[in-house]
């Protein structure tokens, strides 16, 4: 007997990977590293269920709904707009960024920022897990091995010949888990927040 295979979950995989690529501007489907042990249990169960973290290369490509065959740019845009819709819905991010805040007091901006911070943080944590790329404290001096991952560490200052020794200015972030909403057909991804009409 074959083990149950969540095939349509695999399709979900593509949607978010396409989106991640759009965000990262990365041309190839890069593999996500395994989910860390510290991921919340229910979420981990979810990640295990779609086997995403463990076997990224097995995820079969499938067309993203509403995107014409081959039109990856449109699929990327739909995925990115979907994330913006999520952050607006949960944390009012678009409202906040679209408003001119120059004439408001820091207190007013601060109060609104709480709404945005709390909601966007909740949404982000439910969908993406981040881990620092370097475990060291910022400010630590360190020397990179010759075969370091150049995509994960940016060299600044007097960049000479390896081995590179310098001060860690930013620890970096790596998404170790990303489960983003998948756009389904029949919805206009450009509607990031619908207008609301209250009926009496």
């Amino acid at each position: 007997m074959t083990a149950p295979r969540p095939s349509f979950l695999a399709r979900l995989g593509l949607a978010f990977r396409a989106f991640l690529r759009a965000l990262a501007g990365e041309p190839e489907p890069s593999a996500l590293p395994p989910a860390p042990e510290s991921a919340p249990p229910s979420r981990r169960a979810l990640a295990d269920a779609d086997d995403l973290a463990q076997r990224p290369t097995e995820i079969a490509p499938a067309p993203v709904p509403r995107a014409p065959e081959g039109d990856l740019a449109a699929a990327h845009a739909a995925g990115a707009l979907g994330l913006l819709a999520l952050l607006q819905r949960e944390g009012r991010l678009i409202d906040f960024l679209e408003q001119d805040v120059t004439t408001f007091s820091d207190e007013d901006v601060g109060v609104a920022a709480r709404v945005v911070h709390e909601g966007c943080r909740r949404a982000l944590r439910a969908h993406v897990t981040f881990a620092p790329i370097r475990p060291e404290e910022e400010g630590t001096r360190l020397t990179l091995e010759a075969a370091h991952d150049a995509r994960a560490i940016k060299l600044t200052g007097a960049v000479g010949q390896p081995p590179h020794t310098g001060t860690l200015r930013h620890r970096g972030w790596r998404a170790t888990r990303a489960e983003l909403p998948r756009p389904v057909g029949g919805h206009d991804p450009r509607v990031v927040a619908p207008a609301e009409l209250e009926l009496e």
Partner: peptide, 20 residues
């Protein structure tokens, strides 16, 4: 026992899988 991840609409036109 393993928990099934349940696909469901979470927003207009947005699908996610969640354990609950």
């Amino acid at each position: 026992p393993e928990v099934l991840a349940i696909p469901q609409l979470v927003g207009p036109g947005q699908l996610e899988v969640r354990p609950l």
